[in-house]
């Protein structure tokens, strides 16, 4: 129904957002650019069912507050992941249920794709229940930091920007979270390298 907008692929996110003030269609280009990435992130945390709507909610919210976007920031990922993190928090029960299920599911059973399973099984199989248990037990703020780094591939500065906290706080939350994850993996983890 809506034709793809004529937006150069090289335009920065900030350019798109600036243009969207006059031409809302430019914002759709931002959707095309990042919706799949956000979908994957949310689907990992909450499962595929709520992910679709939540991505839509994220872009609607972002569109509504695009006037407040700092146009000096060329990359909009931290901004979008910040919004998505707030929306994920509203689904904390879904998220807890997901980790509980992962904790109980035998390794490999969550895969639809056998090739996927083979690749991941090597290391993840034995430790998945423990990882899931650790994620479930983490306080939300620590988990947000840990997963923005591990699953959204944001660096410390970007994570800080997404959550609106100082980089030092990112560092301390991440350290705390990783300590707990390592503790959960314990000494029986066969893949763990001793420092």
């Amino acid at each position: 129904m809506t034709a793809p907008p004529a937006v150069p692929e090289t335009a920065s996110d900030a350019d798109l957002i600036r243009r969207s003030h006059d031409d809302p269609e430019a914002f759709a280009a931002l959707f095309d650019r990042y919706a799949p990435m956000l979908y994957r992130y949310v689907a990992r945390r909450l499962g595929p069912d709520p992910a679709e709507d939540l991505v839509g909610d994220t872009f609607l919210a972002a569109f509504g507050r695009r006037d407040r976007y700092d146009l000096d920031r060329a990359d909009a990922r931290p901004w979008l992941f910040g919004i998505v993190t707030k929306l994920v928090a509203r689904h904390h029960r879904d998220e807890a249920a997901r980790y509980r299920a992962l904790r109980r599911t035998p390794a490999g059973a969550v895969h639809d794709d056998p090739a996927d399973a083979v690749a991941a099984a090597v290391t993840a199989a034995a430790v998945r229940p423990r990882l899931a248990g650790a994620l479930e037990a983490l306080p939300r703020r620590d988990r947000d930091v840990l997963l923005l780094v591990a699953w959204a591939d944001l660096n410390y500065a970007e994570t800080a920007e997404a959550l609106g906290i100082p980089v030092g706080t990112v560092r301390s939350r991440l350290n705390r979270a990783r300590r707990k994850v390592r503790a959960a993996l314990g000494d029986t983890d066969p893949t763990r390298e001793e420092a």
């Binding site: 689907a43 290391t123 994850v181």
Partner: peptide
């Protein structure tokens, strides 16, 4: 890295 692997395994 273990967490990243888990993430990839959960990917849709």
């Amino acid at each position: 890295n273990l967490l990243r692997d888990l993430g990839r395994a959960l990917d849709r």
